[in-house]
Design a binder for these strands. Structure first.
Lengths: 103, 103
DNA sequence: ATCCTATGCATAGGATTCCGAGGTAACCAA
DNA sequence: TTGGTTACCTCGGAATCCTATGCATAGGAT
């Protein structure tokens, strides 16, 4: 089960904590939501590429473990976007929660 | 600004409060969210028809104001679905809120 | 009387988001 | 050497939403 529209924000949040690679980002989201959120690879990679195109994240080669992986870090623009996304999430989720009760 | 995926649930919630017609449902959602949520007619009507196809709402003709309007009421199945949707919303919104901070 | 706005319903076209299914390849343990 | 996990990627297709457009009526303003 997932929340449409929140993936880019969740990716940016993961990269603020630690620059890392796509597969690990997906794991991280799943772990930190205790399995509730579970974005698939077919969703994650396109979203990641899009964020890179938009300049919100940057990628680089990493060979720390001997094996080449494409890692990502958040950019300054990405941090600003994340801040706006957080605020928007708060506003929208509050609005829905109020309507659905149990505020 | 809107929240993808929440519209059917918000429609069902509106119809639990009061059976009414499409246009009024859209107004209701906008008013109760203080303008934050604002689903357009091109979104609302197809969603409403889909709910009817699925048997979650029923429609009937209303001429109370002298003018014919198509009104909707929630069905028993619709109420059950709404209960599940509420629970799902709570779970998902909590998951995202925890990750994004400010729980 | 006429026009404008709000009401009220509806559809078409396009964008975005997501998933399932599939492919490729490296690494490690049994 | 076989299978499981890690790691990356792409291609449909489905679902959701918006914009734009069309039609029609009611009520108030000019």
């Amino acid at each position: 089960m997932n929340f449409k529209g929140t993936l880019p924000t969740l990716i940016l949040e993961a990269l603020v904590r630690e620059p890392t690679h796509g597969y690990r980002i997906a794991q991280s989201i799943k772990e930190r939501s205790e399995g509730v959120l579970d974005f698939k690879e077919g969703t994650l990679y396109p979203a990641l590429h899009k964020l890179e195109n938009e300049g919100l994240v940057e990628s680089y080669e990493s060979n720390e473990t001997g094996r080449a992986r494409r890692c990502y870090r958040i950019t300054k623009t990405g941090r600003a976007t994340l801040a706006r996304d957080r605020a928007e999430w708060r506003q929208l989720s509050r609005a829905v929660t109020v309507i659905l009760g149990e505020a």
